[in-house]
Structures are given as C-alpha cells and as structure tokens.
C-alpha cells in the first residue's frame, strides 16, 4: 500500500511519453516526436515481439536544462481485450549520457529512468496514466506523473479522420507551477497521429506526432 501511495504521489518532474501504443506490431517501426510544457523529444522504436519494443530516445528537458540521448526498452506487461475495449499496462526503462544546457552548460554524466504507463480505451472514451522517475546524477533526480481523459465526438470507420478531445493533468513538484492542465485535440488517421494542445498555467504548447510504418 505504501508503495502504491509512493508511486501515486511520485514527485519531482521529468519528461514522459504521451504516445499511444508504445509497443507496435512485430517488425513495426514507429517515429514519435513530443513537445510538452517540460521537454522536447524524438523517439524511434522497433517492435521485436508483441510485448517488447526497443528504440532510441533523444530528449531535451527545457526546464531542468539537460539533454539525454540513449536507448529505451518498453515492455507490454499486460493487455486486456474485449469486443469493445482495450486496456494496457506498460513498463519502460532507458538511459544514456546527459548533457547540461543553459545554466547547466558543461555539466555531464550518466542518466537513467524508469516508468509505467496504463491506458483503457474504447472507440468513444480514453483514459490513461503514466509516471516516470529519472536519476541524472549531478543534474538532479526527477519524477512526474500525468493522467489523461478523452472523448471522441464521433466514431470513425477504418481510414477516416478520427478526432479526440482530451484533457491532461500532470504533476511536476519541482516546477514553480507544479500542476499542469493541458486541453488538447488528437487527430488520428491511418498510421499517423497528431496531438496539439496548450498548457494553461504556464502557456506552453503541446505538440506530439506519431507515425507507424
């Protein structure tokens, strides 16, 4: 119980993946770019197994002022199926060489991170939770958590443009504005997914793009 509470209250901030389906189909490649109020990242992964993807992630935490470049592994621990729903639980880990930027220019060292993601969705409703802890040595220790809910105003058929209206809340205790509120719209068509939003407390954009091939 204490562990669950600790995870739920995971403090300190870092970056996390907002992407749908971080494990693809076997032999599938996915390219993802992400920008939120905290960081900007580019991530490319390859799915080795229905439950495992391996990729490379380059991330710039604009607020904590450092970059991390290195491999990431994502494990689909469990997928629940129904005729009308799907739910997933993922664990992920990564790390690499961290380089300070801005006021941290010239500071370098190893960094690693671990996290969890969970989601449940139908064609009409979506909800997700993710958290991540990062240990970047002299550049600091960080954690974050975020939850998202979404609603599709219409249900599209295969190949149609799918539209989702979503709201994300994130908690990054080391920031001046610890709680972020980001309304966003998700467009989804074929192999491409685009999310555009705006973080209200700190007036920062959200822009995520995923392409699967």
């Amino acid at each position: 119980m204490r562990l669950l509470l600790a995870i739920a209250l995971a403090g300190l901030a870092a970056q996390a993946q907002a992407v749908a389906r971080p494990v693809s189909y076997v032999d599938g490649w996915t390219v993802i770019s992400e920008t939120d109020r905290q960081s900007t990242a580019l991530w490319v992964h390859y799915t080795l197994d229905p439950q495992l993807s391996l990729g490379w992630r380059s991330e710039w935490d604009r607020r904590a002022e450092f970059q991390v470049h290195g491999p990431q592994i994502t494990y689909l621990a469990k997928r629940w199926f129904g005729a009308d729903y799907q739910a997933n639980l993922y664990g992920f880990a990564g790390g690499g060489w961290a380089q300070g930027t801005g006021d941290n220019e010239g500071i370098e060292g190893g960094a690693s991170y671990l996290g969890l993601m969970a989601d449940w969705e139908t064609r009409r409703l979506f909800t997700s939770y993710r958290m991540r802890v990062t240990e970047a040595g002299v550049l600091g220790s960080y954690a974050m958590q975020a939850a998202r809910v979404g609603f599709a105003p219409y249900v599209g058929q295969t190949g149609d443009l799918h539209t989702w209206l979503m709201l994300e809340l994130d908690h990054r205790p080391q920031n001046d504005d610890t709680v972020g509120v980001t309304p966003l719209v998700r467009f989804f068509k074929g192999a491409a997914l685009l999310e555009l939003g705006w973080s209200i407390p700190d007036s920062q954009p959200l822009a995520n793009f995923t392409y699967r091939f």
């Binding site: 693809s24 199926f81 799907q86 969705e121 190949g159 799918h162 074929g190 997914l193």
Partner: peptide, 12 residues
C-alpha cells in the same frame, strides 16, 4: 478483440 483504433487496423 481489442480493435479500437486505426493503429490496430494498420498493425493487422
């Protein structure tokens, strides 16, 4: 089971 989005369709 579990087919809820275009990524599912793309995968298959």
């Amino acid at each position: 089971l579990g087919v809820v989005c275009d990524f599912c369709a793309k995968a298959m």
